[in-house]
Simulated assay, not measured.
Amino acid sequence: MDDATRTRIEAAAFRRLQQHLMQDRPDVQNIDLMNMAGFCRNCLSRWMQEAAAEEGIEMSKEEARAAFYGMPYDDWKALHQTEAGPEKQAAFEKAFAANVDPDKG
């Protein structure tokens, strides 16, 4: 497989993941994703921001989140996120520390 084809396939898979998380399963909470998988929607938006930077494109954290979420992050949170109890928050702190570079969080 040539690089251009691989890139198109990878991009299509990413778009499908994004659709799944944003449209098909907005009920799945970011904190649960982080606690179980070590990444969440915010990580994916940060990875987009980092990939843009590698291409010489400046993208703020807010711009990257809006690009991934399809709306401002605060709007997404208001529509789909629920409050997490202390047990989930404690698990999140551990998962975040283990999986996210503290300088990038």
Results as ranks from 00 to 15, higher is better:
residue 71 M to E: 12
residue 73 Y to A: 14
residue 67 A to Q: 12
residue 87 E to N: 05
residue 85 G to H: 03
residue 73 Y to V: 06
residue 68 F to R: 09
residue 63 E to H: 04
residue 68 F to D: 00
residue 66 A to W: 06
residue 92 F to P: 00
residue 91 A to G: 03
residue 58 E to F: 07
residue 46 R to I: 12
residue 78 A to F: 04
residue 56 G to E: 01
residue 63 E to S: 09
residue 58 E to W: 06
residue 65 R to K: 13
residue 86 P to C: 13
residue 95 A to S: 15
residue 46 R to S: 03
residue 67 A to F: 11
residue 74 D to C: 07
residue 73 Y to F: 13
residue 62 E to A: 15
residue 81 Q to S: 14
residue 71 M to Q: 15
residue 87 E to A: 07
residue 47 W to Y: 12
residue 74 D to M: 11
residue 50 E to V: 14
residue 55 E to W: 04
residue 76 W to K: 02
residue 94 K to N: 08
residue 53 A to H: 10
residue 85 G to F: 02
residue 65 R to S: 11
residue 90 A to M: 09
residue 91 A to V: 04
residue 79 L to W: 03
residue 51 A to Y: 03
residue 56 G to K: 01
residue 88 K to Y: 03
residue 60 S to R: 09
residue 75 D to Q: 13
residue 65 R to Q: 13
residue 51 A to P: 00
residue 55 E to Q: 15
residue 66 A to T: 14
residue 74 D to Y: 07
residue 68 F to Q: 01
residue 67 A to P: 00
residue 78 A to W: 02
residue 47 W to N: 12
residue 72 P to Y: 08
residue 80 H to D: 00
residue 88 K to A: 15
residue 68 F to Y: 15
residue 95 A to V: 06
residue 81 Q to C: 10
residue 88 K to E: 14
residue 67 A to E: 12
residue 95 A to Y: 10
residue 59 M to P: 00
residue 75 D to V: 14
residue 89 Q to P: 00
residue 68 F to I: 11
residue 90 A to N: 03
residue 59 M to Q: 02
residue 78 A to H: 04
residue 58 E to I: 11
residue 93 E to C: 06
residue 90 A to Y: 01
residue 54 E to Y: 05
residue 77 K to D: 03
residue 53 A to E: 11
residue 69 Y to G: 01
residue 81 Q to I: 07
residue 73 Y to S: 09
residue 58 E to M: 08
residue 78 A to K: 09
residue 48 M to D: 08
residue 77 K to C: 09
residue 90 A to G: 01
residue 85 G to D: 05
residue 50 E to I: 14
residue 94 K to Y: 03
residue 92 F to W: 15
residue 79 L to E: 07
residue 83 E to T: 13
residue 48 M to Y: 09
residue 83 E to C: 06
residue 84 A to D: 05
residue 74 D to G: 06
residue 63 E to Q: 15
residue 87 E to F: 09
residue 81 Q to A: 14
residue 70 G to M: 08
residue 51 A to K: 13
residue 49 Q to N: 05
residue 62 E to Q: 10
residue 56 G to C: 00
residue 54 E to C: 13
residue 77 K to T: 10
residue 54 E to P: 02
residue 85 G to T: 04
residue 86 P to R: 15
residue 85 G to P: 00
residue 72 P to M: 08
residue 91 A to K: 15
residue 92 F to G: 00
residue 91 A to F: 04
residue 86 P to F: 15
residue 62 E to I: 07
residue 46 R to T: 10
residue 57 I to C: 01
residue 54 E to R: 14
